[in-house]
Simulated scan of single mutants.
Amino acid sequence: MIPFSRFPSFFRIVRGAERAGTPRGRRRAWLPALLLALVPVAARAEPPRLVLLDDDGFGLAQWMVIASPDVRVLGITSVSGDVWQKQATAQQLRGVEIAGRTDIPVVAGATYPLLNSEALTERWEALYGKLVWKGAWMKRWVEPTEQKLPPYHGPDVVPDLPEGNPTHKAADGIAAEFLVRTVRAHPGQVSIIATGPFTNLALAQRLDPEFASLAKELVYMGGSLNPRQRLPGTAAEQFAREFSNSPRREFNIRFDPEAASIVMRAPWRRIVMVPVDPSTQTELSPALLARLSAADTPVARALRGRPTGFPLWDEIAAAVWLDPSLIRRSHAAFVDTNTQFGPGYGDILSWTPGYEPGLGEQKEQVVEEVDVPRMEAMMQRLVARPASGAPSR
């Protein structure tokens, strides 16, 4: 039996209803209130948050979102970036297998950027200097680094994955159409977390000009404003070398600048930008990896032996979407991408509100700093959650 003391306003509702109308009408007025009051709070819980994940791979960030109990992942889309699209698709398929969530569709996306290419990037480097990271086009490090160089190969090669190769297949269709169809099926309800280049999102916006406006929000990891190294003497410090001379350059945006500009000018209801700036206070250190992989769950076991020394780029984007209170400092800015083929190609452009040129730029919440201890605690908690299977529809 549910004690009425749990519902202190119940009697006020009934008394108010009884004072109005005829006896029969009074009964009709207060009966729904009675039934609602008798329903346990848990039974009246909020519906799950709907989200799409768009990325150039799969890792801890995606596992965090999938493991969250109040979240329903509607799908995962792949795009070329750190690796080619086919390899990213394989990683995503294997990732949902490890999570016990093969009910989540994985949809293959764009293989090539809209205009940028490997040859064009090499030409740019000959004119303006070497890039620190080129993702799928990376052949060698310019200077020694502790991080291992991934094998260079073409777009149709899918190397064996360290965590094992997937046994199920990607869903039919292409990512851009899937994104449009899913957002249209749930207008105003679907968040999109993008942690790779924006090619899929740009194609979706060009296919359907209402795509962005029908989504609930876009949260993306990408761009750079003015990062400062917060963890000197660590392996993650090496990733900040580029920012000392090129503070506005970041790989996710630089890989497909034209797509980034299309997405940044699209009419989203809300945009949260997670640039590299807050990531310089984070690192997947051996100690953190040991804490994350200590649990006896498939995801925790899959993390064992993973390379360390990387900042928590994508994990920050996932974490601040799951819990916005992790954001310690942010500001509003209008943001766009430089698409002129010159020394600043792919760099971030930003303006304080009132200074923007007014050519379609959108106001974004730019994350500057996050609560790292709380974020790491969240990561550890979610990795330790046992697989719960598909959520109720």
Rank of each mutant, 00 (worst) to 15 (best):
F7M: 07
F7L: 06
S9L: 14
I13E: 12
R15H: 04
G16V: 06
A17E: 13
A17L: 06
R24F: 12
R24D: 14
R27H: 07
R28K: 14
A42N: 02
E46T: 14
P48V: 07
R49V: 10
L50G: 03
V51F: 01
V51W: 02
F58N: 05
L60G: 04
W63S: 13
W63N: 10
I66A: 13
I66N: 01
S68Q: 11
P69K: 11
R72A: 14
V73E: 03
L74I: 08
Q85H: 03
Q87T: 15
Q87D: 04
A99G: 11
V106S: 04
V106G: 02
V107A: 10
A108C: 08
A110T: 11
Y112F: 08
P113E: 10
N116E: 14
L120P: 00
T121Q: 14
E122G: 03
E125K: 09
E125C: 10
A126W: 05
L131E: 07
W137A: 12
M138Y: 00
K139I: 09
R140T: 12
P144E: 14
K148V: 15
P150Q: 11
L161W: 04
P162S: 08
G164D: 05
G164I: 13
N165R: 13
P166I: 10
E177H: 06
R181H: 05
R184A: 14
H186C: 06
S191I: 07
I192D: 01
I193R: 01
P197F: 03
L201Q: 06
Q205Y: 02
D208K: 11
P209L: 07
A215D: 00
G222A: 11
G223K: 05
S224T: 14
S224L: 07
P227Q: 07
R230F: 01
L231I: 14
T234R: 12
A235V: 15
A236I: 06
A240I: 07
E242N: 12
N245L: 13
E250W: 00
E250Y: 01
D256M: 10
D256G: 08
E258R: 05
A259F: 00
R269I: 02
I271M: 08
M273I: 13
P275H: 02
D277A: 05
A287R: 11
L288N: 09
L288P: 05
D296G: 05
D296R: 09
A300Q: 04
F310P: 01
E315N: 07
V320D: 01
S325A: 15
H331S: 05
V335F: 01
D336G: 08
T339C: 10
T339N: 02
T339Q: 03
L349W: 05
S350C: 06
P353G: 10
P353N: 09
Y355V: 14
G360H: 05
G360W: 03
V366H: 00
E369K: 13
D371A: 11
A377N: 06
A377Y: 00
M378S: 06
M379A: 09
V383L: 08
P386R: 07
A387H: 04
S392V: 15
